[in-house]
């Protein structure tokens, strides 16, 4: 797998895949996608990078420690639940903030989205922690 083709394609693909994973995460509430799928896509992208350039390079590219993603993700998910408590509703009840933009566009911000972002981060963190731990010896 030390091939020039793989490395070149990977360089091309990695940005697209990572962007696509965020896209999958954000559209997940209305179309196939979501935190699990988006997270797995991002993780697969990094896995491809590991195969092409090795774990050290992948680690340099990712910059953050995958273990930190675990903590941040779990915290985000729990925070999404606690916001509902602040509003006086049961833990993890969904709350929305819908902002109308000029034209017919709108932006939906919600605790549900925050929760899904938490799932995304945990999934990415899990896969990368495992991958780097295995490869980084």
């Amino acid at each position: 797998m030390n091939s020039l083709i793989l490395r070149t394609t990977t360089m091309l693909l990695i940005t697209i895949l990572l962007l696509f994973s965020v896209f999958l995460l954000l559209r997940g509430h209305d179309l196939p996608g979501g935190g699990f799928i988006g997270g797995l896509t991002a993780a697969a992208a990094v896995a491809l990078y590991v195969l092409a350039f090795g774990a050290q390079a992948a680690n340099d590219m990712v910059r953050v420690r995958p273990r930190a993603l675990l903590g941040v993700g779990l915290t985000a998910a729990v925070a999404a639940g606690l916001i509902a408590v602040l509003f006086g509703t049961p833990f993890l009840t969904g709350h929305w903030l819908i902002i109308d933009l000029p034209g017919s566009a709108e932006v939906k911000l919600s605790t549900v989205l925050l929760f899904d972002v938490g799932v995304y981060l945990v999934v990415v963190g899990t896969v990368l922690t495992m991958l780097f731990a295995l490869e980084g010896q």
């Binding site: 997940g28 509430h29 996608g33």
Partner: peptide, 16 residues
């Protein structure tokens, strides 16, 4: 407020 029922179950109905 979600159109993907599977995802709504995961992150809202059965979020816990």
């Amino acid at each position: 407020l979600g159109r993907n029922i599977v995802n709504v179950i995961l992150v809202d109905f059965r979020a816990i």
